[in-house]
């Protein structure tokens, strides 16, 4: 499994510096959460890793090769990107939506048996097979999130980069989609998530990268990084941490220091 890395990435967007010399290494087969307050640069870093922004300095690499230098179709086959906006502009059915995930693989003569098999597997993995013929306008928020995840999974990417995939979901669906993301990592793909919910990050992530003002505060295994001191420093908050009766770590912000 190749390694996805940010090597000294600095990024300016709309005249504002959003990332400053960011170094981070992401491992395949693991779930990494990008955490930080609003405007810390999480989504920008994710988009850089997907090759969607041209950094002012530094580069994103996949297996040592610069992501932005890769031919677009090859990059799209290896890196699946799930944007924050859950846009689906036409009322296509779920099967058609998921089949769009195969576009980077599609040859000149249209859909192949492999394309259909991958789309069906993605529908099954997200529990959306029964919804295949339903129009996206008639899906609930949770079903829509799963259908969009299935779209990315249909591309069988080595890397799944998802920008707040759990943000609009209720707790039950957060756990469900979270479990699906963990299953993707268990299958060998690398998963990088932008997350706002600290407790979800603690539950889902193997590794965590903490960002503040476009810089990396800390990066490493979740249990080493999600400490009261580091999380508090990242958000400028006083934070309490603990472990539930079932062994689940929790993080509770309690207020501003002082």
């Amino acid at each position: 499994m190749s390694v996805l890395a940010a090597e000294g990435i600095s990024l300016v967007l709309g005249g504002k510096r959003v990332l400053e010399s960011v170094d981070a290494v992401f491992s395949g087969g693991r779930v990494t959460a990008l955490l930080g307050s609003n405007g810390a640069g999480k989504s920008s870093l994710l988009a850089c890793l997907a090759g969607l922004h041209a950094p002012e300095a530094g580069r994103a690499t996949l297996g040592g090769a610069e992501v932005r230098a890769m031919p677009a179709p090859a990059r799209a086959r290896r890196i699946g990107f799930l944007p924050q906006a859950a846009d689906v502009h036409w009322n296509i059915d779920v099967a058609t939506l998921v089949a769009l995930g195969r576009l980077p693989w599609r040859g000149r003569w249209g859909e192949t048996a492999a394309d259909r098999a991958a789309a069906e597997a993605a529908l099954a993995a997200t529990g959306m097979t029964a919804f295949a013929r339903r129009g996206v306008e008639h899906l609930s928020g949770g079903e829509r999130a799963r259908a969009l995840l299935a779209r990315v999974l249909a591309g069988e990417p080595e890397w799944l980069l998802a920008d707040e995939p759990l943000a609009s979901l209720d707790p039950a669906h957060q756990l469900e989609v979270g479990a699906q993301l963990r299953a993707v990592a268990a299958g060998g793909s690398g998963v990088v998530l932008v997350v706002h919910d600290l407790n979800l990050a603690a539950r889902l992530a193997d590794d965590v990268v903490l960002l503040r003002d476009g810089r990396v505060v800390a990066a490493g295994a979740a249990e080493d990084v999600l400490t009261a001191a580091l999380v508090g420093a990242t958000y400028g908050l006083t934070v309490e941490t603990g472990v539930t009766a079932t062994g689940q770590r929790y993080i509770v912000p309690v207020g501003r220091p002082g």
Binding site: G51, P73, R75, F81, P83, A85, D87, V88, L97
Partner: peptide, 13 residues
């Protein structure tokens, strides 16, 4: 690909 928005379309090549 644009059905999924501009950013998703770009990520799809």
């Amino acid at each position: 690909a644009l059905t999924l928005g501009e950013q998703a379309a770009r990520s799809m090549g």
